[in-house]
């Protein structure tokens, strides 16, 4: 197998996408709920890799490079730990080749 054209790094992958970052986050995670969550599905299911588990069992979340797909809130096992919304109008991801 030819590994030379293997995969790009995740940062590189995301650098090709146009994100217009809003001032206000459109995702807010209640990490108190996350501490009792055993699966933490959002961490690996999020295609933009926005959720990072912390050593204390909580979740560190980002919103800047979000695809606004909705996977995280649909997959959230901890009840409603993730309050999710769309970014303000005109902000957020802009696909050119979608």
């Amino acid at each position: 197998m030819n590994q030379r054209y293997g995969d790009v790094s995740f940062e590189d992958r995301m650098s090709h996408v146009d994100f217009r970052v809003a001032e206000q986050p459109h995702i807010v995670v209640d990490t108190d709920v996350c501490r009792s969550c055993t699966t933490k599905t959002c961490v690996h299911a999020c295609p933009a890799n926005l959720f990072v588990p912390t050593a204390e069992g909580g979740i560190l979340f980002n919103y800047e490079q979000c695809f606004e797909c909705g996977t995280c809130y649909l997959m959230c096992d901890g009840g409603n730990a993730i309050s999710w919304s769309y970014p303000d109008g005109g902000q957020g991801v802009v696909f050119r080749h979608g």
Binding site: M1, M14, V17, F67, C69, R96, H97, G98
Partner: peptide
């Protein structure tokens, strides 16, 4: 990396990555 797909995409440069439900 599948042998049926790899020759088709070989050497191509990523221009956008996207996701949607």
């Amino acid at each position: 990396r599948h042998p049926s797909i790899q020759p088709l995409v070989r050497g191509a440069e990523l221009v956008e990555y996207s996701a949607h439900l």
